[in-house]
């Protein structure tokens, strides 16, 4: 049974904002299919009415106080951006 095919790879690649070249699609689909076929065995396991475990820790209610502790470090924050303008990060035009 094939669970991941070329069409699926195209769709999830699009969702994940990565681009898989046409020539690599088959290979990706085959590999992902092999992996998913194996990992998908989990579906056969009877988990009864078990709840999904969302947090492994018995930790709850971790808060910080509402205090301003940060200063303006704009220059440091912009340092790693390759394209910027007037203290802004810059991207190709986003049409709303």
């Amino acid at each position: 049974m094939t669970v991941v095919d070329v069409k699926t790879v195209r769709k999830i690649a699009d969702m994940a904002a990565v681009f898989i070249e046409e020539k690599d699609l088959e290979a990706y689909a085959a590999q992902l299919n092999t992996i998913m076929e194996h990992m998908g065995k989990i579906m056969d396991l009877d988990t009864g009415d078990q709840e999904p475990m969302e947090h492994i820790l018995p930790v709850k209610n971790v808060f910080r106080d509402d205090e301003v502790t940060n200063k303006n470090i704009k220059d440091e924050l912009l340092k790693n951006a390759s394209v910027k303008e007037d203290g802004y990060f810059k991207v190709p035009t986003v049409v709303e």
Binding site: V4, I12, M15, A16, V18, Y28, Q31, L32, I42, P52
Partner: peptide, 29 residues
């Protein structure tokens, strides 16, 4: 990229229950 694609697949609306949520149940067990 392979892992990103796997994860995107497992979290997608179509497969989230049978994969991601199922895995969380197994994690609990």
């Amino acid at each position: 990229k392979r892992r990103i694609l796997l994860g995107t697949y497992a979290l997608s609306a179509e497969h989230q229950d049978e994969l991601y949520k199922k895995a969380l149940k197994v994690r609990n067990i």
